[in-house]
Simulated assay, not measured.
Amino acid sequence: MEPAATAAPALAFRDATAADVAELVALVESAYRGEASRAGWTTEADILAGQRTDPAGVLAVVESPGSRLLTAEREGRIVACCQLEHRGEHAYFGMFAVSPALQGEGLGKVVLARAEREARTTWGVTEMHMTVISVRDDLIAWYERRGYRRTGRTSPFPYGDERFGIPLRDDLRFELLVKPLV
């Protein structure tokens, strides 16, 4: 007789508070920077060194009017997060992180879908916008499979501002991706 399949523990969603800042910084850093990030597929360790975010940056998102830092918890631990910011007719999606140990299990899809619903119902926006480092082909393809489209509009990477990391190459820029939410 085969053992019964066990379902993953349920996710609980809530807005982050100032008390969550240290845990959120650790989550974001683990998903994108350093050797620990290589356990997942979202690592930026080959293109950026240094930090991805810091406590002041996360706290600013948590406390900003018109902005939310949505967390997904499993068994009392934050395992994913994303920023939602109201920008008129659209919402901005950023600071998306999933624990590297849980990447590839579909958690990111669930969090992204929840973020889109929250933006639509909370602010009545009709589009979600995000920026992705243009050389992140696998990540951009992941978003395209979820309905985002490349716009070809780019903005410069903040070279020289170590709050966003230390570039390991000289061709980084952000590309705007957009998805209708209707």
Rank of each mutant, 00 (worst) to 15 (best):
A39F: 12
A39D: 10
A39W: 13
G40N: 10
W41M: 14
W41C: 14
T42F: 15
T42W: 15
E44D: 15
D46Y: 12
D46S: 13
D46N: 13
D46Q: 14
I47W: 05
I47S: 02
I47Q: 08
L48K: 07
A49N: 09
G50F: 02
Q51R: 15
T53D: 14
P55D: 01
A56K: 11
A56H: 10
A56E: 14
G57N: 13
G57F: 09
G57S: 12
G57K: 09
G57L: 10
V58L: 09
A60E: 05
A60Q: 03
A60G: 08
V61D: 04
E63G: 12
E63C: 08
S64M: 13
S64W: 06
S64D: 12
P65S: 04
P65N: 02
G66V: 06
S67Q: 07
R68L: 13
R68C: 11
R68V: 11
L69I: 05
L69N: 01
L70I: 03
T71H: 06
T71P: 07
T71Q: 07
A72K: 04
R74F: 02
R74M: 03
E75S: 08
G76A: 04
I78R: 01
V79R: 06
V79F: 09
A80G: 02
A80F: 07
C81I: 03
C81D: 03
C82T: 15
C82L: 10
Q83N: 12
Q83R: 15
Q83G: 12
L84V: 04
H86Q: 02
H86S: 00
H86A: 06
R87Q: 13
R87F: 00
G88P: 06
E89V: 00
E89H: 08
H90W: 09
A91K: 04
A91Y: 00
A91F: 02
A91G: 09
